[in-house]
Computed example of a mutant assay.
Amino acid sequence: MEDLALIRTAALEAGKLALEMRAAGLKIWNKEGGSPVTDADLAVDTLLRERLLAARPDYGWLSEETVDDPERLARRRLFCVDPIDGTAAYLKDKPWFSVCIAVVGDGAPACGVVYAPALDEMFEAVAGQGATLNGGQIHASATADLENSAMLGDARMFAHPAWPQPWPPMRIESRNSVAYRMCLVADGRFDAAVALSPKNEWDLAAADLIVREAGGMATDHFGRPFTYNAPIPQAPSVICAAPTLHPLILNRVAHIGRA
Results as ranks from 00 to 15, higher is better:
residue 197 S to Q: 15
residue 208 D to M: 05
residue 210 I to R: 00
residue 174 S to P: 00
residue 211 V to C: 09
residue 178 V to Y: 02
residue 186 A to S: 05
residue 193 A to L: 09
residue 192 A to F: 04
residue 171 R to I: 14
residue 174 S to V: 08
residue 174 S to A: 06
residue 180 Y to M: 12
residue 207 A to D: 01
residue 172 I to S: 06
residue 170 M to H: 02
residue 181 R to D: 14
residue 183 C to F: 05
residue 183 C to R: 07
residue 198 P to C: 04
residue 198 P to E: 00
residue 200 N to R: 13
residue 169 P to K: 15
residue 210 I to F: 01
residue 183 C to S: 11
residue 176 N to M: 11
residue 176 N to Q: 07
residue 213 E to I: 08
residue 183 C to M: 06
residue 189 R to K: 13
residue 199 K to S: 15
residue 173 E to H: 09
residue 201 E to F: 01
residue 202 W to C: 11
residue 212 R to A: 06
residue 200 N to Y: 14
residue 199 K to Y: 10
residue 173 E to L: 08
residue 175 R to E: 12
residue 168 P to R: 03
residue 215 G to V: 04
residue 177 S to F: 02
residue 170 M to T: 04
residue 206 A to C: 08
residue 182 M to V: 07
residue 205 A to Q: 11
residue 169 P to A: 14
residue 171 R to A: 15
residue 174 S to Q: 12
residue 199 K to D: 10
residue 188 G to E: 06
residue 189 R to E: 14
residue 189 R to Y: 08
residue 196 L to D: 10
residue 213 E to V: 04
residue 172 I to A: 11
residue 189 R to Q: 14
residue 194 V to S: 00
residue 177 S to L: 02
residue 186 A to L: 05
residue 173 E to I: 08
residue 201 E to I: 09
residue 179 A to L: 03
residue 168 P to W: 02
residue 194 V to G: 06
residue 177 S to V: 13
residue 190 F to E: 02
residue 185 V to P: 01
residue 189 R to V: 13
residue 169 P to Q: 11
residue 194 V to D: 01
residue 184 L to A: 10
residue 168 P to I: 02
residue 209 L to D: 03
residue 179 A to E: 00
residue 195 A to N: 15
residue 185 V to A: 03
residue 206 A to L: 14
residue 184 L to M: 11
residue 168 P to T: 01
residue 191 D to C: 03
residue 202 W to Q: 01
residue 176 N to A: 14
residue 199 K to R: 15
residue 206 A to D: 07
residue 197 S to P: 08
residue 190 F to R: 13
residue 204 L to Y: 12
residue 195 A to D: 12
residue 207 A to T: 09
residue 183 C to P: 10
residue 171 R to D: 11
residue 186 A to I: 07
residue 184 L to Q: 12
residue 205 A to S: 09
residue 200 N to H: 15
residue 213 E to G: 05
residue 168 P to L: 05
residue 198 P to T: 01
residue 181 R to M: 07
residue 174 S to N: 09
residue 180 Y to N: 06
residue 205 A to F: 08
residue 170 M to R: 10
residue 212 R to V: 08
residue 211 V to H: 04
residue 202 W to E: 01
residue 208 D to Y: 12
residue 172 I to V: 11
residue 191 D to S: 03
residue 193 A to C: 13
residue 182 M to S: 03
residue 189 R to C: 12
residue 211 V to T: 08
residue 172 I to Q: 10
residue 188 G to C: 03
residue 208 D to A: 10
residue 191 D to E: 04
residue 202 W to P: 13
residue 202 W to N: 05
residue 204 L to D: 05
residue 213 E to Y: 02
residue 183 C to D: 02
residue 170 M to F: 03
residue 168 P to F: 05
residue 213 E to C: 09
residue 199 K to V: 15
residue 192 A to G: 00
residue 176 N to Y: 11
residue 200 N to Q: 13
residue 185 V to C: 10
residue 179 A to I: 00
residue 208 D to T: 12
residue 194 V to I: 13
residue 215 G to M: 08
residue 198 P to A: 07
residue 201 E to K: 03
residue 213 E to W: 03
residue 211 V to N: 03
residue 187 D to A: 02
residue 215 G to A: 01
residue 185 V to M: 02
residue 181 R to Y: 03
residue 170 M to Y: 13
residue 195 A to Y: 14
residue 195 A to M: 15
residue 208 D to E: 12
residue 193 A to V: 05
residue 193 A to M: 05
residue 171 R to E: 15
residue 200 N to M: 15
residue 169 P to R: 15
residue 173 E to N: 14
